[in-house]
Design a protein around this nucleic acid. Sequence first.
RNA 1: GGCCGAGUGGCAGAGUGGUCAUGCAGCGGAUUGCAAAUCCGUGGACGUCGGUUCGAUUCCGGCCUCGGCCUCCA
Length: 462
Amino acid sequence: MLSIYNDLTRAKETFEPLKPGHVNMYVCGMTVYDLCHLGHARVMVVFDVVARYLRSRGYAVTYVRNITDIDDKIINRANERGEPFHALTERYIQAMHEDAAALGVLPPDQEPRATEHLPEIIAMVERLIARGHAYVASNGDVYYDVRSFPDYGRLSGKSIEDLQSGARVEPGEVKRDPLDFALWKAAKPGEPAWDSPWGQGRPGWHIECSAMSTKALGDTFDIHGGGADLTFPHHENEIAQSEGATGHPFVRYWMHNGFVRINDEKMSKSLGNFFTVREILQRYLPEEVRYFILTSQYRSPLHYADEQLGNARSALTRFYTALRGLRDDVPAAAGETLEARFHAAMEDDFNTPEALAAMFELTREINRVRGEDPAHAAALGVLLCQLGGLLGILQDDPEVYLRGGDGGPAGLGDAEIETLIERRSAAKRDKNWSEADAIRDQLKDAGIVLEDSPAGTTWRRA
RNA sequence: GGCCGAGUGGCAGAGUGGUCAUGCAGCGGAUUGCAAAUCCGUGGACGUCGGUUCGAUUCCGGCCUCGGCCUCCA
């Protein structure tokens, strides 16, 4: 029985999809005017795990993650660079796909773009006008009339009155109410624009998600996800738009992931304190970054620290060390209590840290039995890999992971390493310990760790 | 100011009304030519002040501190 924390009710609820056996899920993706940073990576990894896990429980999942490829920031950035906005967005979409793939994030089933859904967007705005939820302003903008939607503020826990007191009024405002938000923005000279019943213009930020999610998944769907900073106003506005236009409930379970923090502050573009995925991948393996993201429950803050990325490396080394040398062509061990513990953790609102704890205990069990019962160890190892697969980790060949670490600036090649190990083995046979230790120290200085066993010497990169 | 969330051992991070998180680091032991890896054992925590309770880190309230949203943001 899977339970999910629903931000709409602020409680964990038993998950039951609208259509038995099928889950429709929409996640707010990126606005593509820059490279992905770790916060974007967290969204992608978290909901990738959600989709993987739902599928593993037998659900057919339709996972939609949108791309915002037209908005103010994109226009400004394109102007700064003196290039067409779509050239800019194409480049960053490409980069995002590369980053996602590197982190083992499976592609969503659909990846709709705002600029490819102008007809749906315009139709929804027209519908909102017709149903009395929106109005055309004197300058050609179209605004949502927030006061026409009594439930406004429910998701974010705000009241219209509270919002009213904090609302700021810009000079030259053409809204009827400061809380109203733009569905359609009239084009200024030189801006990208599309034809509409209200003249040339472009969609507001929120309407694209309402239009695209409804088109892809229907008026009502199961899960809507995104970063916690989208709760208000973005998702609040989506509810107002979609329910205002369709007259039906919009989303059944709202999921928001917590922020990545650095020095106790939110990592964000506006604060400028972010690391891009690319920067981090220059120093850590993709699987290490992914593991690091999963060490925190998705709603909790994730504290960025080099020490913790290093910890991720140690942890993965422990897993892969246990898997190394085990047969992987056997059936997974069945009926293990640790497997049940893993699933209990995942079914409790995707508690990945607890799920990882179960995997560590499974790892200890593998190490414990591998001497006397290699067959059982192998079966447990296959199980460990399967569980890891649900999280998108431990899918590498152990040897590749263990030998593929950072070789350092003066990294030795595999062949050189093997040669040195053979010379050391010869010295060991001769009980020439000083020679053997000298070679081991030499390798250690090059970042190579040796591990002797009765079966011979293995090595890995530290 | 309004609303929301959080404060757990050296670090990270789960969880629970009364026996164990887990990983890394530390310490002791086994193993090893010595190491490494591994196994066994072990120390160390629940912001603060009250309340409820036989018993609270866990429930309730006050306080303190921190973070977030209220404006673009994953």
